[in-house]
């Protein structure tokens, strides 16, 4: 599903964020990526959604080689991969409903389809009553749930989450992780970047550890070890 072959990412002469990474994620897997600050986790996410280009090596999604993906194809890729971030990245001048709808409008979906899909998604993340609120009127956990709903609008085969619980307390963290698990159970491949020891340990799923841009361990049923 996601395949990196000998990928190196160098931002400039001083900073090599990733070095010779080999990583293959199978369809339906739940992979946690851990590592200290600056170890290259976010860079890995950015390569997967084509926000950055690999300096060398090959990145592919399914059988789509995106290593040198042309700029005009990037939007197509982004509509096939759901992404959530630590800082939610919601549009603060749009309501919750509009935020989720936006992700469908970008691909020219009909208004009728949007009106049936969005309420269902808000139902799944438990926020149907907040649809006319603005992001700043919601708690962090609620905002992240909106972001998850938005990430799911295109029924993506892959969901990438870069420290989605980094700004949340433990109760909200649990809630978000439960939602991610459920999404995974329905067949979506999930890549979760996290700092949270508890989350990783309770998951009992595959754990990939990065250190200074190198992949130093990859365990099928791993624990958080740093």
């Amino acid at each position: 599903m996601i395949n990196l072959e000998g990928v190196t990412k160098r931002y400039n002469k001083q900073s090599t964020a990733l070095e010779d990474i080999h990583l293959n994620v199978e369809p339906g897997e739940f992979v946690s990526i851990v590592g200290q600050s600056g170890s290259g986790k976010t860079t890995l996410v950015k390569l997967i959604i084509a926000e950055e280009r690999a300096t060398s090596g090959k990145v592919s999604i399914g059988d789509w080689d995106i290593t040198r993906i042309p700029y005009r194809h990037v939007p197509l890729l982004r509509r096939q991969i759901g992404v959530i971030f630590q800082d939610f990245k919601l549009l603060d001048k749009k309501t919750i409903y509009e935020n989720v709808a936006f992700a469908l409008q970008v691909s020219g979906e009909s208004g009728a389809r949007i009106r049936t899909v969005i309420p269902r998604l808000l139902e799944i993340v438990g926020l149907p009553h907040k649809k006319n609120s603005y992001p700043h009127e919601l708690s962090g956990g609620e905002q992240q749930r909106v972001a998850i709903a938005r990430a799911l609008v295109h029924r993506p085969k892959i969901l990438v989450a870069d420290e989605p619980t980094g700004n949340l307390d433990s109760i909200n963290t649990q809630e978000i992780i439960e939602i991610l698990k459920k999404i995974n159970e329905f067949g979506t491949t999930v890549v979760l970047v996290t700092h949270n020891r508890e989350v990783v340990n309770q998951m009992k799923r595959r754990v990939v550890t990065l250190d200074k841009g190198r992949l130093i361990s990859d365990v099928k049923e791993g624990k958080y070890r740093l």
Binding site: P75, R78, R79, D92, F102
Partner: peptide, 15 residues
């Protein structure tokens, strides 16, 4: 910020 977010959720430059 809005512009980068829009790009991240798959909007084309023209959109």
């Amino acid at each position: 910020v809005e512009i980068t977010i829009k790009k991240l959720v798959g909007a084309t430059n023209w959109f």
